[in-house]
């Protein structure tokens, strides 16, 4: 179970052009947690995610996934443990058909064809995309692409799911479907998003990044009720916690009751 722990210690990253995207980031995420990483544009969210599966190397500091330090040698194992869903599904779905794409990971892990077949069928059913199996990715809608992209990662049975802007560009119905799907996962989940309502619904914990540093780390409701903090970090309350536009009544109390 220790496999599911993500520990980031004093992580710092400076790009070749001199921009320090991450200055000093530390946190620990334990097994089964669902964590939202939020922050304004340029706060360092994407840079942080790229560190989690070794696409970028830290300038200083360290990352441990389940007590294994992230390094060149451990990278293959860590990439198997962490399932990374990219923001633009077109970057992730590069194979000719949905089946081939979902099978790409398991085949690289060396499973037998029969095993791969079984896995692909299972995860496609799980994300509700069984009927898309033989379609090429360019014939899919935005929501379908997103679900298939998640399936491509699930087929490698990761312990930790990392998703960059999962609800970006989805219509309300597709967004709702996706959130329902994500809520049922038992994995450790890490999301970055500007969709704060989604973060509120899916994450019990929120980490606020601002200018490459962790400005707050705590229960979602606590952070979303801290108006001062949100304003400082160029954020705002999720719409569901803001006043009703018709009756102007604050919904905050009602909301916190219903959560408990």
């Amino acid at each position: 179970m220790s496999h599911h722990i993500v520990e980031v210690k004093n992580l710092r990253h400076v790009y070749p052009d001199g921009t320090a995207a991450l200055k000093d980031v530390s946190f620990i995420i334990t097994h089964g947690e669902s964590v939202g990483i939020i922050g304004a544009n340029g706060a360092g969210k994407s840079t942080l995610l790229q560190h989690l599966n070794g696409c970028l190397e830290p300038s200083s500091g360290a990352i441990h996934i389940g007590h294994t330090p992230l390094s060149k040698g451990t990278l293959p194992d860590i990439r198997r443990t962490i399932g990374m869903v990219f923001q633009d599904p077109d970057d992730q779905l590069f194979m000719p058909t949905v089946f081939d794409d979902v099978a790409f990971g398991p085949l690289n892990l060396g499973y037998t064809p029969a095993d791969v077949e079984q896995r692909v069928t299972d995860v496609l059913e799980l994300v509700g995309a069984g009927h898309l199996r033989d379609k090429p990715p360019y014939h899919l809608s935005g929501g379908e692409k997103k679900r298939v992209a998640i399936a491509t990662v699930l087929s490698m049975s990761p312990d930790i799911l990392v998703m960059d802007e999962p609800t970006n560009g989805l219509d309300p119905f597709a967004r709702r479907q996706l959130m329902k799907l994500l809520r049922d996962f038992k994995h450790t989940r890490i999301f970055t998003s500007h969709d704060l309502d989604m973060v509120l619904e899916l994450c019990e914990r929120v980490i606020v990044l601002h200018e490459g540093e962790v400005w707050a780390d705590g229960p979602a409701l606590e952070i979303f009720n801290n108006d001062k903090l949100l304003a400082e970090c160029r954020l705002e309350k999720p719409f569901s916690m803001q006043g009703c536009p018709v009756c102007r009544k604050q919904k905050q109390d009602i909301f916190s009751e219903s959560q408990e």
Binding site: G54, R79, R80, G83, D91, Q92, L107, L109, T152, M156
Partner: peptide, 18 residues
């Protein structure tokens, strides 16, 4: 980004026929 997505799913330079 595509290359990153490939690496993230265990790509080592080989394509396997399915």
């Amino acid at each position: 980004r595509i290359h990153m997505a490939m690496l993230a799913r265990g790509f080592t330079g080989e394509f396997h026929a399915s």
